[in-house]
């Protein structure tokens, strides 16, 4: 009887562990395959326009003739800056962690400008926060918005809906003026 109770307890612990592991790791692992595929094709810390087929897969609710630009950022070795230079009109920019968490989002009306900078950096861990508050160190903030990511990798997504499919090419061309790359500090 005691042995059966023991194994039932073991089974319960295994169930809780499997539940937590599935929720925490399986969706991220599945999605990381998609990220890895895009990284192989375009690299990290570069801004590119998503092909229509990829756009349909990643954002099935958004119209196919809109333009979606993406920067797969990696802040492991330092900050990354997204310097958006978008054509006038309606757009939405969203910064996601690679776990799908929305870190920051802004649309054209909230921004007030079609050209802006978003500085991305790694959120400090607990020890780093203690050290920073002791040393009075603060991350450098340039002109624009600063987003700290809890994950080393993520996606910056710019979506620009269009009234006419014929506008896709010129708008994509105009959006290509957006830059994504390592943040250059003033001392460099």
């Amino acid at each position: 009887m005691m042995i059966r109770l023991f194994w039932i307890a073991v089974a319960l612990v295994a169930a809780v562990a499997a539940h937590a592991a599935f929720v925490l790791f399986v969706p991220g692992y599945m999605f990381s395959a998609e990220i890895a595929r895009m990284t192989r094709a375009h690299g990290v810390n570069t801004f590119f326009i998503l092909p229509v087929a990829d756009q349909a897969r990643l954002f099935p609710g958004l119209p196919r003739n809109g333009v979606t630009g993406i920067c797969l950022f990696d802040v492991t070795d330092g900050g990354v800056t997204l310097s958006a230079n978008l054509p006038e009109g309606f757009w939405v920019t969203t910064i996601y962690s690679d776990k799908g968490e929305t870190l920051y989002t802004v649309n054209n009306r909230q921004s007030g400008s079609d050209a802006f900078n978003v500085s991305l950096s790694r959120a400090p861990g607990f020890i780093e926060m203690l050290v920073q508050s002791t040393d009075k160190e603060r991350p450098e903030i340039d002109s624009g918005w600063t987003v700290q990511s809890p994950e080393p990798q993520g996606l910056a997504v710019v979506w620009y809906p269009l009234t006419d499919a014929a506008l896709r090419e010129p708008v994509a061309q105009a959006m290509s003026g957006t830059r994504c790359g390592r943040t250059v500090s003033p001392s460099q």
Binding site: P27, E34, G61, G100
Partner: peptide, 24 residues
């Protein structure tokens, strides 16, 4: 329930809608 809701979207291989910006 955000962690479960995000997991639903990621399992489908897609990004969740931008919170506070796009509703679905």
């Amino acid at each position: 329930s955000a962690i479960y809701v995000r997991a639903h979207y990621l399992l489908q291989g897609r990004l969740p809608p931008s919170t506070g910006q796009i509703d679905e």
